[in-house]
Protein backbone atom coordinates (compact mmCIF):
# COMPACT_ATOMS: atom_id res chain seq x y z
CA UNK A 1 0.00 0.00 0.00
CA UNK A 2 3.11 2.18 0.11
CA UNK A 3 1.67 4.45 2.77
CA UNK A 4 -0.66 6.19 0.32
CA UNK A 5 -4.35 6.50 1.01
CA UNK A 6 -6.06 3.38 -0.35
CA UNK A 7 -8.22 3.66 -3.46
CA UNK A 8 -10.94 1.54 -1.87
CA UNK A 9 -11.47 1.30 1.81
CA UNK A 10 -14.17 -0.79 3.49
CA UNK A 11 -14.64 -0.41 7.22
CA UNK A 12 -16.58 -2.70 9.57
CA UNK A 13 -19.11 -3.46 6.88
CA UNK A 14 -22.26 -5.28 7.97
CA UNK A 15 -24.82 -6.47 5.42
CA UNK A 16 -27.85 -8.54 6.30
CA UNK A 17 -30.46 -10.31 4.26
CA UNK A 18 -33.32 -10.46 6.73
CA UNK A 19 -32.13 -12.75 9.48
CA UNK A 20 -28.98 -13.80 7.62
CA UNK A 21 -25.88 -11.77 8.29
CA UNK A 22 -23.86 -12.06 5.10
CA UNK A 23 -21.10 -9.63 6.14
CA UNK A 24 -20.33 -9.33 9.80
CA UNK A 25 -17.90 -6.46 10.16
CA UNK A 26 -15.60 -6.74 7.16
CA UNK A 27 -12.71 -4.30 6.74
CA UNK A 28 -10.52 -4.25 3.70
CA UNK A 29 -8.32 -1.92 1.71
CA UNK A 30 -7.22 -1.88 -1.88
CA UNK A 31 -4.36 0.38 -2.87
CA UNK A 32 -4.02 2.08 -6.22
CA UNK A 33 -2.45 -0.30 -8.74
CA UNK A 34 -2.88 -3.38 -6.58
CA UNK A 35 -4.47 -6.67 -7.48
CA UNK A 36 -6.33 -7.91 -4.44
CA UNK A 37 -8.16 -11.21 -4.19
CA UNK A 38 -10.98 -12.28 -1.90
CA UNK A 39 -11.28 -15.98 -1.46
CA UNK A 40 -13.48 -18.18 0.64
CA UNK A 41 -15.99 -21.01 0.44
CA UNK A 42 -19.58 -20.84 -0.81
CA UNK A 43 -21.73 -18.44 1.14
CA UNK A 44 -18.76 -16.66 2.70
CA UNK A 45 -20.13 -13.28 1.65
CA UNK A 46 -17.72 -12.54 -1.21
CA UNK A 47 -20.36 -11.57 -3.74
CA UNK A 48 -22.23 -9.57 -1.15
CA UNK A 49 -19.09 -7.57 -0.49
CA UNK A 50 -18.58 -6.69 -4.16
CA UNK A 51 -22.23 -5.95 -4.83
CA UNK A 52 -22.38 -3.67 -1.80
CA UNK A 53 -19.33 -1.75 -2.98
CA UNK A 54 -21.02 -1.55 -6.39
CA UNK A 55 -24.07 0.05 -4.78
CA UNK A 56 -26.51 -2.81 -5.24
CA UNK A 57 -27.13 -3.11 -1.51
CA UNK A 58 -27.12 -0.65 1.34
CA UNK A 59 -24.77 -1.44 4.23
CA UNK A 60 -26.53 -2.10 7.53
CA UNK A 61 -23.49 -0.71 9.28
CA UNK A 62 -19.96 0.37 8.45
CA UNK A 63 -18.69 2.47 5.60
CA UNK A 64 -17.14 2.33 2.16
CA UNK A 65 -14.99 5.04 0.70
CA UNK A 66 -13.52 5.28 -2.75
CA UNK A 67 -10.66 7.63 -3.59
CA UNK A 68 -11.11 9.23 -0.22
CA UNK A 69 -14.83 9.96 -0.64
CA UNK A 70 -17.53 8.01 1.15
CA UNK A 71 -19.80 6.05 -1.17
CA UNK A 72 -23.18 6.48 0.40
CA UNK A 73 -26.28 5.56 -1.54
CA UNK A 74 -27.05 7.48 -4.69
CA UNK A 75 -28.22 6.01 -7.96
CA UNK A 76 -26.67 2.77 -9.19
CA UNK A 77 -25.60 4.43 -12.43
CA UNK A 78 -23.22 6.56 -10.35
CA UNK A 79 -20.96 3.59 -9.60
CA UNK A 80 -19.28 3.46 -13.00
CA UNK A 81 -19.11 7.26 -13.15
CA UNK A 82 -17.11 7.16 -9.95
CA UNK A 83 -14.64 4.89 -11.70
CA UNK A 84 -15.78 1.48 -10.47
CA UNK A 85 -16.49 -1.19 -13.06
CA UNK A 86 -18.28 -4.16 -11.57
CA UNK A 87 -18.44 -7.49 -13.40
CA UNK A 88 -20.90 -9.59 -11.40
CA UNK A 89 -20.77 -13.35 -11.20
CA UNK A 90 -22.62 -15.23 -13.87
CA UNK A 91 -21.47 -13.40 -17.00
CA UNK A 92 -24.23 -10.88 -17.45
CA UNK A 93 -23.93 -10.17 -21.13
CA UNK A 94 -26.90 -8.48 -22.76
CA UNK A 95 -27.77 -11.74 -24.46
CA UNK A 96 -30.11 -10.33 -27.08
CA UNK A 97 -27.80 -7.49 -28.08
CA UNK A 98 -24.88 -7.97 -30.40
CA UNK A 99 -21.32 -8.42 -29.19
CA UNK A 100 -20.50 -4.99 -30.58
CA UNK A 101 -23.47 -3.38 -28.83
CA UNK A 102 -22.38 -4.95 -25.56
CA UNK A 103 -18.97 -3.38 -25.99
CA UNK A 104 -20.44 -0.03 -26.95
CA UNK A 105 -22.51 -0.09 -23.78
CA UNK A 106 -19.29 -0.47 -21.85
CA UNK A 107 -18.28 2.97 -23.10
CA UNK A 108 -21.59 4.60 -22.09
CA UNK A 109 -19.96 7.00 -19.65
CA UNK A 110 -17.07 7.97 -21.94
CA UNK A 111 -17.06 11.48 -23.35
CA UNK A 112 -13.91 10.95 -25.44
CA UNK A 113 -15.76 9.32 -28.33
CA UNK A 114 -12.80 8.80 -30.63
CA UNK A 115 -10.57 7.35 -27.95
CA UNK A 116 -13.35 5.09 -26.74
CA UNK A 117 -13.77 3.79 -30.27
CA UNK A 118 -10.05 3.07 -30.53
CA UNK A 119 -10.16 1.38 -27.14
CA UNK A 120 -13.03 -0.78 -28.34
CA UNK A 121 -11.10 -1.69 -31.48
CA UNK A 122 -8.17 -2.73 -29.31
CA UNK A 123 -10.35 -5.34 -27.60
CA UNK A 124 -11.55 -6.60 -30.96
CA UNK A 125 -7.88 -6.95 -31.92
CA UNK A 126 -7.00 -8.68 -28.67
CA UNK A 127 -9.90 -11.12 -28.98
CA UNK A 128 -10.36 -11.91 -32.67
CA UNK A 129 -13.33 -14.10 -31.86
CA UNK A 130 -15.19 -11.02 -30.64
CA UNK A 131 -14.46 -9.24 -33.91
CA UNK A 132 -15.49 -12.26 -35.90
CA UNK A 133 -18.81 -12.43 -34.07
CA UNK A 134 -19.29 -8.70 -33.50
CA UNK A 135 -22.69 -8.67 -35.20
CA UNK A 136 -24.03 -11.78 -33.48
CA UNK A 137 -26.19 -11.94 -30.36
CA UNK A 138 -23.87 -12.06 -27.35
CA UNK A 139 -25.96 -14.85 -25.83
CA UNK A 140 -24.67 -17.17 -28.52
CA UNK A 141 -21.04 -16.86 -27.45
CA UNK A 142 -19.44 -19.62 -25.39
CA UNK A 143 -19.01 -19.14 -21.65
CA UNK A 144 -15.37 -18.16 -21.98
CA UNK A 145 -16.09 -15.74 -24.78
CA UNK A 146 -18.87 -14.18 -22.73
CA UNK A 147 -16.50 -13.80 -19.81
CA UNK A 148 -13.97 -11.99 -22.01
CA UNK A 149 -16.79 -9.84 -23.34
CA UNK A 150 -18.04 -8.73 -19.92
CA UNK A 151 -14.50 -7.97 -18.73
CA UNK A 152 -13.82 -5.97 -21.88
CA UNK A 153 -17.16 -4.21 -21.44
CA UNK A 154 -16.20 -3.29 -17.89
CA UNK A 155 -12.79 -2.03 -18.97
CA UNK A 156 -14.26 0.14 -21.71
CA UNK A 157 -15.54 2.53 -19.05
CA UNK A 158 -11.88 3.21 -18.25
CA UNK A 159 -12.35 2.41 -14.57
CA UNK A 160 -9.93 3.09 -11.76
CA UNK A 161 -11.11 -0.06 -10.01
CA UNK A 162 -12.23 -3.23 -11.72
CA UNK A 163 -14.21 -5.66 -9.57
CA UNK A 164 -14.52 -9.20 -10.89
CA UNK A 165 -16.71 -11.81 -9.25
CA UNK A 166 -15.54 -15.36 -9.98
CA UNK A 167 -14.29 -14.74 -13.50
CA UNK A 168 -13.07 -18.34 -13.76
CA UNK A 169 -16.30 -20.05 -12.75
CA UNK A 170 -17.27 -22.80 -15.14
CA UNK A 171 -14.45 -22.13 -17.57
CA UNK A 172 -11.88 -24.56 -18.92
CA UNK A 173 -8.39 -24.14 -17.37
CA UNK A 174 -6.99 -22.80 -20.62
CA UNK A 175 -9.64 -20.09 -20.75
CA UNK A 176 -9.04 -19.27 -17.10
CA UNK A 177 -5.38 -18.74 -17.98
CA UNK A 178 -6.44 -16.25 -20.62
CA UNK A 179 -8.73 -14.42 -18.22
CA UNK A 180 -5.95 -14.07 -15.66
CA UNK A 181 -3.40 -13.10 -18.30
CA UNK A 182 -5.74 -10.27 -19.21
CA UNK A 183 -6.21 -9.25 -15.58
CA UNK A 184 -2.49 -9.19 -14.79
CA UNK A 185 -1.65 -7.40 -18.03
CA UNK A 186 -3.98 -4.62 -16.96
CA UNK A 187 -1.84 -3.80 -14.00
CA UNK A 188 0.70 -2.35 -16.39
CA UNK A 189 -1.88 0.26 -17.33
CA UNK A 190 -2.19 1.24 -13.68
CA UNK A 191 -5.52 -0.48 -13.16
CA UNK A 192 -6.56 -1.60 -9.68
CA UNK A 193 -8.33 -4.95 -9.48
CA UNK A 194 -10.43 -6.56 -6.77
CA UNK A 195 -11.21 -10.12 -7.70
CA UNK A 196 -13.37 -12.72 -5.95
CA UNK A 197 -12.37 -16.34 -6.44
CA UNK A 198 -13.25 -19.76 -5.15
CA UNK A 199 -10.22 -21.11 -6.92
CA UNK A 200 -7.78 -20.19 -4.15
CA UNK A 201 -4.64 -21.28 -5.98
CA UNK A 202 -5.48 -19.20 -8.98
CA UNK A 203 -6.21 -16.14 -6.87
CA UNK A 204 -3.09 -16.43 -4.76
CA UNK A 205 -1.00 -16.73 -7.89
CA UNK A 206 -2.45 -13.60 -9.50
CA UNK A 207 -3.00 -11.25 -6.58
CA UNK A 208 -0.56 -9.09 -4.63
CA UNK A 209 -2.61 -9.49 -1.51
CA UNK A 210 -5.40 -11.82 -0.52
CA UNK A 211 -8.20 -11.77 2.01
CA UNK A 212 -9.74 -15.03 3.21
CA UNK A 213 -13.41 -14.55 3.97
CA UNK A 214 -15.55 -17.05 5.80
CA UNK A 215 -19.03 -16.70 7.25
CA UNK A 216 -19.00 -12.96 6.75
CA UNK A 217 -15.65 -12.20 8.39
CA UNK A 218 -12.09 -11.73 7.26
CA UNK A 219 -10.26 -14.71 8.73
CA UNK A 220 -6.85 -14.14 7.26
CA UNK A 221 -5.13 -11.56 5.11
CA UNK A 222 -1.71 -10.82 3.81
CA UNK A 223 0.62 -10.84 0.87
CA UNK A 224 -0.40 -13.71 -1.39
CA UNK A 225 3.12 -15.14 -1.39
CA UNK A 226 3.09 -15.35 2.37
CA UNK A 227 -0.40 -16.85 2.58
CA UNK A 228 0.49 -19.63 0.19
CA UNK A 229 1.26 -22.56 2.41
CA UNK A 230 0.74 -20.58 5.63
CA UNK A 231 -0.01 -23.02 8.45
CA UNK A 232 -3.35 -21.46 9.37
CA UNK A 233 -4.52 -21.02 5.79
CA UNK A 234 -6.70 -24.13 5.60
CA UNK A 235 -8.21 -23.46 8.99
CA UNK A 236 -9.12 -19.91 7.96
CA UNK A 237 -10.46 -20.93 4.59
CA UNK A 238 -12.64 -23.68 5.94
CA UNK A 239 -13.74 -21.66 8.94
CA UNK A 240 -12.07 -23.79 11.60
CA UNK A 241 -10.44 -20.78 13.18
CA UNK A 242 -11.82 -18.00 15.42
Amino acid sequence: MNGRAPLLSVRDLVVRYGAITALDGVSLEVGEGEIVAIIGPNGAGKSTLLSTVAGLRRPDAGGISFAGTPIAGGALEGTVRRGIAYVPEGRHVFAGLTVLENLELGATVRRDRAEARAHLESFLDAFPILRERAGEAAGRLSGGEQQMLVIARGLLSKPRLLMLDEPSLGLAPKIVDQVYELVTSLRRDGLTVLVVEQNAGRALAAADRTYVLNAGRVRLQGRSAELTGAPDFDAAYFGLKD
Partner: peptide, 12 residues
Protein backbone atom coordinates in the same frame (compact mmCIF):
# COMPACT_ATOMS: atom_id res chain seq x y z
CA UNK B 1 -32.92 -6.98 -20.99
CA UNK B 2 -31.31 -6.31 -17.65
CA UNK B 3 -32.06 -3.02 -15.98
CA UNK B 4 -29.55 -3.43 -13.16
CA UNK B 5 -26.69 -4.36 -15.45
CA UNK B 6 -27.60 -1.46 -17.73
CA UNK B 7 -27.32 0.93 -14.79
CA UNK B 8 -24.01 -0.64 -13.83
CA UNK B 9 -22.56 0.21 -17.24
CA UNK B 10 -23.85 3.75 -16.74
CA UNK B 11 -27.24 3.86 -18.43
CA UNK B 12 -29.36 6.41 -16.57
Amino acid sequence: EDFTMAQLVGVR
